[in-house]
Design a binder for these strands. Sequence first.
DNA 1: GCGACAG
DNA 2: ATCTTGTCGC
Length: 262
Amino acid sequence: MPPRPDLAPDSGLERAEMEALQREIADAAVFEDDFAFDPSTLGDPLAAASSPDDPPIVAGVDQSFLTNAEGEQDRALSAVVAMRGGEVIERVHAVTPLEIPYIPGLLAFREGGPILEALEALSVDPDLLLFDGSGRIHFRQAGIATHIGVVRDVPAVGVAKSLLCGSPRGDLENLAEGTRVPIEANARVDAPDGTLLGYAVQTRQYDSPNRYINPLYVSPGHRVGPDTAADIVLALADSYKLPEPVRLADSYADEAKRGLEE
DNA sequence: GCGACAG
DNA sequence: ATCTTGTCGC
């Protein structure tokens, strides 16, 4: 399938048009595995080294916001960190003016501009994109990971720190490290009830009885199925809760922001 | 009308 | 997202 620049998020659209565009995105999206690389070689340098091909390139994407003299957020900065075999091979960022406020369900229209610009600036081309936000776990099954994944036609996964919609199939408190709980569609989602949208994934957990770490909410963006998406996030989250490419994009977004403010 | 709501 | 100290636990 071809890239779909014609479906890029446009912050100038009416709200109803944005939602209609998201339904198109969901229709064009592929919520199952459709990629050539071996996901087991993503984070592990050893597996990567013993593989016949070049290890796949994974890129993490995250945003930060810049404030003007009046103290208002007026620009969005998107940071992309590309890794191969566990090593950072490139970092790029882009800044664009902020056009619309944050509206749950319409995140891609607020942050899509700088993200697409930053991805253009990347000299390598990623085999997989990891986003800070939802993919299929979205009212219209078209979260930011799905939207950008379809526009670029690159396999993509959504990694959110809180749940936008859908219902967990079980208790999410104090899950064991390495485990997952299905998130299925409910009445708030534009999909048949019970549709598997993604997983709550526990990448890290304390061993003490008192406190516990909340899970991540992982969902397919494009060309990745829900189980593989969870496998990938678990494989990429070694020492921290967030998968490494996203964690590094997160800190790079802050670093680049500071560089522009000082 | 009321509640729910990624970053 | 962003603004920040203290505090818990290893």
